[in-house]
């Protein structure tokens, strides 16, 4: 069986007043089914642009070159009409701020049903059942009632659960999560990470998890891609990146993170 996602030599270019600028340069990675790839980097590293290029969601004017293949099929250069059929069906994405991804005027049930019916058709009644099941799957209590709630009636962590339910309603093979827990409190973050890991395991989908937080990556990813200023710095198994990093930048990042379990007063002096 081929790899689920193959990205080769991906370059993303933005036109600017001073000429074209590459925000992602020659990035290559593969993601197998049942795998979680963590993409980690600081701000401006190009980690979000890489994932948007995979989804075909780059901002207007940006150009992507190279190759992005989902299950052997090239996605770069495909018309948006075809990509729209894939998004939400075979590949889905969730973002940092669920509130800005949800329409405040519609119940969450309607929004999940809309995704389902756009891809699978069927009656409204069936779609509603699917939406309730999807909310149940992400651990929202009382989904029969919550399906008729509006986004503002949920807490931040619950809204992220709703987004995950919407992303998974068509059982995609690929889920890209861009900083999905960054805006959440640590206790809620732990719950969402557990939920994503469990759902990925049950469904056998591939997960790309983007974050600036190395500790989060360590807890969820099997493979890690470290990016810096649009370039791929290191790409290896999680164990290798954390236990035997090859690059100075990765080492510097690992040295920068404060450890909660280290002895106090470890001689941090100026």
């Amino acid at each position: 069986m081929s790899d689920l996602l193959v990205v080769e030599d991906l370059t993303v270019t933005f036109p600017t007043a001073r000429g074209p600028v590459d925000v992602v340069r020659s990035v290559s990675f593969t993601l197998g089914r049942d795998e979680t790839l963590g993409i980690v980097g600081e701000s401006g590293s190009g980690k979000s642009m890489t994932s948007l290029a995979v989804m075909g969601l780059l901002p207007k004017g940006a150009r992507a070159s190279g190759s992005v293949r989902l299950d052997g099929v090239e996605l770069l250069g495909r018309p948006d009409r075809e990509l729209r059929r894939l998004r939400g069906d075979r590949m889905s994405m969730i973002f940092q701020d669920p509130l800005s991804s949800l329409n405040p005027y519609y119940t969450v049930g309607l929004q999940i049903e809309e995704v389902y019916r756009a891809h699978r058709g069927g009656s409204g009644k069936d779609a509603r059942k699917v939406a309730i099941a999807a909310l149940q799957q992400v651990g929202l209590p009382d989904p029969e009632r919550r399906v008729d709630y509006y986004p503002h009636q949920f807490s931040g962590g619950q809204r992220q659960r709703v987004m995950i339910a919407m992303a998974l309603v068509c059982s995609p093979e690929l889920l890209i999560a861009d900083e999905p827990t960054t805006a959440l409190d640590v206790t809620v973050q732990a719950q969402i990470l557990g939920l994503l890991a469990g759902l990925r395991k049950d469904s056998g989908m591939g997960l790309v998890f983007i974050t600036h937080d190395l500790a989060v990556i360590s807890s969820i990813a099997t493979r890690v891609l470290v990016m810096r200023q649009g370039e791929q710095v290191e790409y290896a198994t999680a164990e290798q990146v954390f236990a035997e990093p090859r690059h100075d930048y990765t080492r510097m990042l690992l040295d920068s993170i404060p450890r909660i379990d280290d002895p106090l007063d470890e001689g941090v002096t100026a």
């Binding site: 640590v186 973050q189 732990a190 990470l193 937080d213 190395l214 500790a215 989060v216 360590s218 807890s219 999680a238 164990e239 954390f242 236990a243 035997e244 990093p245 690992l254 993170i257 450890r259 909660i260 379990d261």
Partner: peptide, 12 residues
């Protein structure tokens, strides 16, 4: 609080 896998961190 998320932690880096302590075994990996120790080895590094």
């Amino acid at each position: 609080v998320p932690r880096i896998n302590p075994e990996w961190d120790r080895r590094r």
